[in-house]
């Protein structure tokens, strides 16, 4: 049976389901913004959506193009700076969820959005990680969303922009668990175009929690598209999108297809 929705749509719906009503969520630019607005317009109407540039408790009518977009501050009651949103609320541990994208992720949920290849002579130099490192460091939990490809789900990221469960020690010569360098929270899930990955309680390594069975994704696909050995023994099929979720996503959240590329 052919499905009437895409993997990109399933990824956004799956990510939105991980956000809970009433939480304070600090959202990064891009696909996280789409999933967070979808959550606000469906099951998490009282979620407080914050963006690092200025928007505090954002309720946009139109999809913002970035976290500083005038669309993001439409009808907000406070327009702080990143010194308050990040320096005060995030640094003092008052943010429940950080919601991020990235170019590479590894088995411990370290994220790279800086460069591919050696730092000083990179094959690919990206824009930079913006506020992702800050958010991944001190939010109570972090949700990561990205396309599932072998070059993205790597054994070791080329550069740790945003620390995961096992990151750089304070001597910057060895690796250590994040609690040892004083960081809060940690990666909670990686939502991809194949399924939702979580992190083992004990080992803190990534495993496959659900896969998009309804779209023809198999657990073999997840293993094949992941550079490191990933545990798929716990993977269950993901429930397909509800008509309401798809309808709100297509008609209200991103009707222009700015992020969803319709």
């Amino acid at each position: 049976m052919a499905s009437n929705y895409s993997r990109l749509e399933m990824m956004v719906v799956a990510a939105s389901r991980l956000l809970r009503n009433g939480e304070r969520v600090l959202v990064g630019t891009g696909i996280p913004l789409v999933a967070a607005i979808l959550a606000k317009k469906t099951h998490a109407r009282d979620m407080v959506m914050m963006m690092e540039a200025v928007a505090f408790d954002s309720n946009p009518e139109a999809l913002p193009f970035c976290v500083a977009d005038p669309r993001a501050v439409y009808r907000t009651t406070w327009t702080p700076t990143s010194a308050e949103v990040m320096g005060h609320f995030l640094q003092s541990g008052k943010i429940d969820v950080g919601f991020l994208g990235g170019a590479q992720v590894d088995r411990y949920g370290n994220l790279n959005s800086t460069c591919i290849g050696p730092y000083h002579r990179p094959e690919k130099r990206f824009e930079g990680s913006g506020g992702a490192s800050d958010i991944a460091s001190l939010a109570k939990r972090t949700i990561i969303i990205m396309n599932h490809e072998k070059r993205r789900f790597v054994d070791r990221v080329d550069y740790i922009s945003s620390p995961g469960w096992k990151c750089r020690a304070l001597d910057w010569k060895s690796d250590t668990m994040r609690a040892n360098v004083g960081l809060n929270g940690g990666p909670y899930a990686v939502v991809s175009t194949l399924g939702v990955m979580k992190f083992d309680e004990q080992s803190k390594e990534m495993y496959a929690d659900t896969y998009y069975d309804d779209l023809g994704v198999s657990i073999g696909d997840i293993r094949g598209m992941t550079e490191f050995e990933i545990d798929v023994s716990r993977a269950r099929p993901m429930a397909p999108p509800l008509p309401e979720e798809l309808g709100v996503l297509r008609e209200k959240v991103d009707p222009e297809g700015i992020y969803m590329r319709y």
Binding site: Q91, T114, Y119, H120, S129, S133, D134, S137, L138, Y159, I160, S161, S162, P163, C167, R168, L170, W172, R178, V181, G182, L183
Partner: peptide, 13 residues
């Protein structure tokens, strides 16, 4: 309290 654990402070980088 930010920057700990990341390569942003890595002296090699």
């Amino acid at each position: 309290r930010f920057l700990r654990g990341s390569d942003i402070l890595n002296p090699e980088m």
